[in-house]
Simulated scan of single mutants.
Amino acid sequence: MSKKRKWNDDYVKYGFTCATEKDGTQRPQCILCSTLFSNANLKPSKLDEHFKNKHGGRDAGNNIVTLIAKRARFDQAGTLPTYGFSPTEKSLLRAFYQVAYQIAKLKKPHTIGEELIKPCVLEMAKIVLGKEAEKKLQQVSLSNDVIHNRIIDLSDDILEQVVADIKASPVKISLQVDESTDVSNCCQLLAVVRYVKKKKVEDNFLFCQSLKTTTQAIDVFNKIKEFFARNELHIDSISSICTDGAPAMLDNRSGFAALMRKEIPNLKITAFFIVTLLQQGHCPQI
């Protein structure tokens, strides 16, 4: 029995949506002509071939925006069920994200979802709840790409919430920054933020970004400035920064502290080493 192919949201650019059968099999359906293909055709080369031969490709005016707009009617309840298919239920979608969250939290390989978790869940459902429950859970896709995309979605959502909280903070924020290296010896810039939310002081991990070239003070400064600009945060909303005691951070002329004071004259700078706390899982104090 051949392995079933999995839907990828990027396939919508070829003019297709995903139709899921009752047994969990995913099949591509053309948004423009409603043609339903087999699971074996669920790959970019086949989808692109149909899009070009039947609908003229992107030159015919079928860009991604118009395709997504046309796709909306296929996701309405009552369209796909008529043909024996149904869109992804909210409970199943929530299950996707819960499993992805646990995999990310435990730092496990993304492939563990499809190779271990799903087979175990299906076996347990079949034994305890019966075949109907097994068929239901079969629709939960835990492939490597799905888990990867779900983790990115979760990360983006958390960042949006933290940024929104920072913007709503009634007082200025504090940052704690440090440089560290990961398991591949690549230098990473870590940032933790403290702000006020609902009259309570909150600590949250803000970002971890690679310093791809050098680790000089100007590199650290540019990373933080770019992050604030990208997320529409005012750099002068920072009232204090806590760093490690490295010369690149605290040098009075060309260090990171000096560069920040040029942007924020009244900025307070203190020194503290946070890598140990982060590795132990504690929330650092700013």
Rank of each mutant, 00 (worst) to 15 (best):
6 K>N: 11
10 D>K: 14
11 Y>V: 11
16 F>Y: 13
28 P>T: 04
29 Q>S: 06
35 T>D: 12
35 T>K: 11
45 S>V: 05
48 D>Q: 15
49 E>Q: 09
55 H>L: 13
60 A>F: 00
63 N>H: 11
67 L>T: 07
67 L>D: 07
70 K>E: 05
82 T>K: 15
85 F>P: 06
88 T>W: 04
102 Q>E: 12
103 I>F: 03
103 I>E: 01
113 G>W: 02
120 C>T: 12
121 V>L: 03
122 L>D: 11
127 I>L: 13
129 L>E: 14
133 A>T: 06
135 K>H: 01
137 L>R: 06
141 S>L: 07
151 I>Q: 07
157 D>I: 00
157 D>G: 05
159 L>H: 02
161 Q>E: 03
163 V>Y: 05
165 D>M: 10
171 V>H: 10
184 S>N: 15
184 S>W: 00
188 Q>M: 15
194 R>H: 12
198 K>W: 08
198 K>M: 01
199 K>C: 09
200 K>D: 10
217 A>R: 00
220 V>N: 02
222 N>L: 10
225 K>I: 14
229 A>L: 12
232 E>R: 11
232 E>S: 14
237 S>L: 09
237 S>M: 02
240 S>I: 00
246 A>D: 07
247 P>V: 08
256 F>D: 14
259 L>E: 10
261 R>M: 13
267 L>A: 00
276 T>E: 04
278 L>T: 06
